[in-house]
Amino acid sequence: MIVFKKVSKIYPFDCQALVNINLLIKDGEFVSIAGRSGAGKSTLIRLLIKEELPTHGQIFWKDQDIGILKNKDMPLWRRQIGMVFQDFRLLPNKTAYENIAFAMEAGGRPNQDIIRDVPQLLKLVNLTERAEHFPNQLSGGEQQRIAIARALAHRPKVLVADEPTGNLDLLNTWEIIRLLMKINELGTVVILSTHDRDIINGLDKRVITLEKGKIIKDDPNGKYILF
């Protein structure tokens, strides 16, 4: 369960990215965050993974205020959330297999777990035969699927995807969305930020719509309402 309590983010020189956000995301939910570019979607996600700190308010994971997490506890927190980015952010010097294994190694998981789980994750994203390829030898869609597999390597409770299809064509976009839905069905909370109307209309899940840093709509079976 994730709770945003009166969260605001003001960037220097009075740029209000988020204004008084109150939000509750329950276990097992699939939440889309919709809005135009600059509406505050990415800021919301950056605050959640503590890439940045809120100017006001608190963010809770279960009962833990993540704002007061110490630096040494940060890796533990980040291992509970899987992150998927628009620009994939794979490690360029590691193969697909190693990219997934890296997340597990960083988490201190034993070698036998890695040998067992990574092939399973590669199978889940349907890229078993690309295991030994480097990111620059993979297509955009393939890279994003590897990134999703990496995000799942910690068996996170929450998967956060910030515009994951922003750099992909239509076919790959839907492949990614179907993958996210499958992950959600397996019990992981999925938070998807997107400005793609077709994705949101096709999902039929909860949609939170942001505009100018405020939540203007929170609909359990939402549609894209901005024009």
Partner: peptide, 17 residues
């Protein structure tokens, strides 16, 4: 530098990165 950031974001401790 981007790799270092990614490592941190996927849960690596400072020393591991």
């Amino acid at each position: 530098r981007k790799e270092i950031k990614v490592m941190k974001l996927v849960g690596a401790s400072n020393w591991f990165a």
